[in-house]
Amino acid sequence: MSSALLYAIAGVLLFAAGAAGVVMLDHLLRRVLAFNIMGSGACLVLVGLAQRSGIPDPVPQAMVLTGIVVAVAATGLALALIRRLHAQTGRVDGKGEEGRDKGETVAGLTLPVPQAVAGQGRDD
């Protein structure tokens, strides 16, 4: 087994661990971490698999180089959205259903929508 293949296998394990983390973790910052680990795993598979014969391959290397920069941009965007969510609802976990009631009363911004819908219903 070449060492490049070893890194590709590690990439698969990292991807699987990251994917499980994205699904299981509640805190949104941890999900961003898990998402980043998934991305790193995918990059390792791309480069490791292409170089399993032992010869460096510049094409996947260039793709991964752009991928890393895009990953940090995606992280920045995700963090901006999380901070916005926190500022408006006070929540930092991804519990959509259970946390909803609490979120809406705190938010104040999401409240007017159901009221407006209800109002229209009465008018009809």
């Binding site: 895009v70 941009a73 965007l77 901006a80 959205l81 901070r83």
Partner: peptide, 16 residues
Amino acid sequence: EIAVLLVALLGVVVAS
């Protein structure tokens, strides 16, 4: 990719 980065920056400007 540069276009994607600019869109991400735009998203951050809007979200923050």
